[in-house]
Design a protein around this nucleic acid. Structure first.
Length: 291
DNA sequence: TCTAACCTGATC
DNA sequence: GATCAGGTTAGA
């Protein structure tokens, strides 16, 4: 569940907790979860100082002295803890890193989708996940978004979830952004009008900004270091299937788009009449139009 | 561009 | 007991 806002909140807290501390060797409790780059081992964090804690899309980056970087991806159910060693190890704790202030950094993930990596400069530069990421949504101009969508013939929601187009959105925020921009998730991504594009860009920034300020959304697994987020109370469609739309009263529907559960208000997010799409296709087929 | 798969836990 | 889940990716 953690998407950009949740990861950003965790990153800010981790930065305050970890910056300047020195790490010990990584203790691995589940092999699949800790992935050191070729040539690196669990020993290669020992004695290195935390230079900073930053974020790229949904990935937590912890650059260390000695030109190595610890990365943490929470995926669906991962979380981090910074706590005293005496605290009992939570179920599904897979990686533990001792800290020079006597505490421990722990990575917990019931579903084991998450990953902790240790990368040197070379591995970081070559990391295929990082290399494929598109621009950060909060730093993206409307023009950039336009260019990104221009070649996308699939659904608008599918495009927003594609990390190579915009990096950091997930299912919750895609739904919330589309509702607030009054856009149907099944609209063809490359066919937005100028006004629709402008609304999408505006709401993307607004929703993410508000979510960060609200401490992210806490639905079931997500928890920042300190307290649960509160943005879920501001969700207008996500998780509200069957409830009345806060804007018009219509019952919120849950449908499937791009293989994901998708929440919409059928009234506020009208699907553009199919007739027009057919006309465009028919014109293209008869050789009359170029797209 | 879409689906299935990776896992476990919550919910129906 | 079956179904579904917030992310990502390999393969169709």
């Amino acid at each position: 569940m953690p998407e950009l806002p949740e990861v950003e909140v965790v990153v800010r807290q981790l930065r305050a907790e970890l910056r300047g501390l020195t790490l010990g060797s990584v203790r691995v409790r589940h092999r699949d979860v800790f992935r050191p780059a070729t040539g690196l081992t669990v020993e290669d964090t020992r004695g290195h100082r935390v230079v900073d804690v930053t974020r790229r899309a949904k990935l937590i980056l912890i650059p260390l002295s000695g030109s190595v970087t610890l990365t943490v991806h929470l995926r669906m159910t991962g979380r981090v803890e910074v706590c005293a060693p005496a605290r009992p190890i939570a179920l599904h704790t897979h990686v533990v890193v001792p800290l020079s202030d006597g505490r421990e950094l722990r990575f917990v993930d019931p579903r084991r989708f998450g990953r902790v990596q240790l990368l040197d400069e070379r591995a970081l530069a070559r990391d295929s996940f990082l290399a494929r990421l598109g621009p950060e949504p909060l730093e993206m101009s409307c023009d950039e978004l336009d260019r990104g969508l221009a070649s996308r013939v699939g659904s608008l929601k599918g495009a927003l979830l594609d990390q190579s187009l915009v990096a950091g959105l997930g299912n919750i925020y895609a739904d919330e952004i589309l509702f607030r921009a009054a856009l149907h998730p099944r609209l063809v991504a490359c066919r937005l009008s100028t006004d629709e594009l402008r609304r999408l860009h505006e709401e993307m920034r607004a929703v993410l900004q508000q979510a960060i300020e609200g401490g992210g959304s806490t639905i079931s697994d997500y928890r920042s270091l300190r307290r649960p987020g509160s943005f879920q109370t501001q969700h207008r469609v996500f998780g509200r299937a069957g409830q009345a739309c806060l804007r018009c009263g219509t019952s919120i529907r849950k449908i499937r788009v791009a293989g994901r559960g998708t929440h919409i208000c059928p009234t506020c997010q009208p699907h553009r009449r199919r007739r027009r799409a057919r006309r465009i296709r028919a014109r293209a087929a008869s050789g009359g139009g170029k797209g």
